[in-house]
Amino acid sequence: MPVMTMVEAINDALRVEMRRDPRVVLLGEDVGVKGGVFGCSAGLWKEFGGDRVMDTPLSESGIVGAAIGMALYGLVPVAEIQFSDFIYPAFDQIVSEAAKMRYRSGGEYTVPMTIRTPIGGGIRGGHYHSQSPEAYFAHTPGLKVVVPSTPSDAKGLLLASIRDPDPVLFMEPKLVYRTLKEEVPEGEHVVEIGKARVVRSGKDVTLIAWGGMVGMCEKAAAKCAEEGIDCEIIDVRTIVPLDEATILESVKKTGRAVIVYEAPKTGGFGGEISAILAEKAIEWLEAPILRVTGFDTPFPYTLESVYLPEPGRIREAVLKVVRF
């Protein structure tokens, strides 16, 4: 099996699907001739031409709105928003239009569209190249939200997202884009949307994370293991629909949960997971549910490493719930 970074795996998924399905088109800023600012669409403009790999004017709402129209007409668009920090001009198109189209038309019109967008910190990007806005979108009925944490999952989940009959927001953690390399299956490789992944089995505490924070949890778990604490790690993989069953099963086994996400603490999606655990697993809990998160501040530049949850901060939370 070839070894790939996440960027290479995403590029591979796009190529596989564009070769397989002539309805698949890409559009976005700089996705064509340049191949995307991170290189996710490198080589595709050359292979498939400017009709199927479209450089658009600089308008996020325009990219998503036009992609919706293409989907209504029967294409399968994959739109790229260059950084999720710039997705807000398209918020209306995503929330009011794409996500409600099937419901409001009784299924007469559907939007099988994927929006790819990089999220998260780790590249010294300051306020506007670092944020993690998944919670805003998880609050939108009719929209699926997918966040891979590994190259192999990025390929498999992206293929599943493009083939999904409903709009999918596919959020790619920049922290992992080029830092993690692993074997990725060639050709067909689909990972089902809605299934969490048990990254590491353990009996003492469940760490729940997605995107760039999964790797942080693995490092934290390795440290904790040296201290005799056995962490289980769940990679949520899809925020919507959430695989509650896998999370509940793990927490019922360990009795302890620490949820790790890099968005601001208040209103983050980890709060939703915490509420589900409180509703459905409170009898199994041995300790309070803790969250390790970004702060309720804009994403900082110089103090990024303090803002982002890191293994040390995660370990502190693990010690707290284990010693409770």
Binding site: S61, G62, V64, G65, A66, A67, I68, G69, M70, A71, L72, Y73, G74, L75, P77, D92, Q93, S96, E97, K100, R104
Partner: peptide
């Protein structure tokens, strides 16, 4: 929808697809 002007982009997308 009740939202103003969003449909114009859908019209453009339909036209681009055609």
């Amino acid at each position: 929808s009740s939202v103003i002007a969003t449909q114009l982009l859908h019209g453009v997308g339909v036209a681009m697809a055609a």
